[in-house]
Write a protein that binds this DNA or RNA. Structure first.
Lengths: 224, 224
DNA sequence: GAGATATGAATGAACG
DNA sequence: CGTTCATTCATATCTC
């Protein structure tokens, strides 16, 4: 277990007292990396099982290592290698922007399958406008008089309510569409903790549901 | 030091005209941080590849940046956010339901159930705890009379201020320690958008700095 | 300028 | 295999 990472010259006094502070992650020794790299560069990029075992035994001369470590190493090595390749291709195909600097730092990653909520298709400045633009007008903070109700544990309330926090206080919101005017009066606006106001229709009905556990702030719009 | 091994393929020559040596790390501009934070806080915590590209182009208006930089930023942001939650949760759990010494809590690293991101299940508890410690009493929302100040473009404010949002309005905070009482009066409390109040010392001086791009809410504590 | 902290970058370990 | 999470390393920044 105690494969011990690198001899760190720093002085974070730890070690001794920890009873079972397992070093969870394998840190390959320089020699081991050298061997692995040379194998990879020799063309063996995806060694079969028995080859992996042989490599592992080889590496063990320089420190504890498991078959799994070797397997993962090659997998990651392949993945990363390929990705780098792709990066370069994509980068060359993308030379469209005006700025003279294209920053060639290489390496990005990802390509996510499912995302939550696209940042809209709007133009570039839409976001900075969202932040700043949202407050072009005036808002004053609503005076919330609701009493705190924190004590009751947040259990799996099987009733159809969503637990959120409004102005710092726990609040059980009905799951359906929310009538802001009926609930809070004319000029009430709910602002998500990110600073983004929740959209309502022309009748003051919330267009989207509150999200469990999130923090919102109730403010009064001076524009309405 | 021993940085051998790792064939570091990165070619960090960024745009910043570093005369010679070791400027290997991207340093996001304040405006870029603002944009990134606002995207993250708006719910896009893990943008897919094409989104990343779009974001990168947006950021490039304020300085050289690569897709990889954006990718890493979101990765780190998620990771850090998560870990923080965990630490808070662990801390609060320690205080609430355990005899003096509980040494057997040990590890549960093996099973990391949570797969998606934010407030789910376990996180709810931390939120309620966070709020509970703070909201046992009463708060009323501060009446913010500050005029909106959004028009000014987010320029290269190299002055030592931090741009944040308070009650939805842009605000340039001085970098040093902040005197809450002098700034907002006696019972003012700043609450981070996560619901967590910012600690102050007995003189009402903020114990920690505001963080660029974050959203805060100014409330009046009824306890003080 | 040393120490502490924040955070960009890298990579081992998994998941689907 | 592609993607994502967790941990670690390195450096930029802040503090005294």
């Amino acid at each position: 277990m105690s494969m011990e990472g690198r001899s760190n010259g720093s002085s974070p006094g730890d070690a001794a007292a920890a009873p079972a502070a397992v070093r969870s992650r394998w840190t390959p020794k320089p020699e081991q990396i050298l061997i692995l790299e040379s194998i990879f560069n020799s063309g063996t990029v995806n060694p079969p099982k028995d080859e992996t075992v042989r490599i592992r035994k080889l590496l063990e001369k320089f420190g504890a290592v498991s078959d799994a470590n070797v397997f993962y190493w090659f997998q990651n090595r392949r993945s990363r290698s390929r990705r780098r390749q792709r990066e370069l291709q994509a980068a060359s195909a993308l030379a469209s922007s005006s700025p003279p600097y294209s920053s060639s730092t290489a390496r990005s990653t990802s390509a996510s399958p499912s995302s939550s909520w696209p940042v809209a298709d709007e133009d570039l400045l839409s976001i900075s406008h969202r932040m700043g633009g949202f407050m072009e007008g005036n808002y004053s903070i609503f005076n919330c008089t609701k009493q705190p109700d924190q004590y009751s544990p947040i259990n799996e309330s099987i009733d159809n309510t969503i637990t959120v926090f409004i102005n710092g206080m726990r609040w059980e919101a009905p799951r359906g569409p929310l009538d802001m005017r009926a609930m809070f009066g004319q000029s009430a606006v709910l602002v998500h903790s990110s600073g983004q106001p929740l959209p309502v229709d022309e009748h003051g009905i919330l267009l989207q549901s509150l999200q469990m556990g999130e923090s919102y702030f109730l403010v009064r719009s001076l524009l309405l």
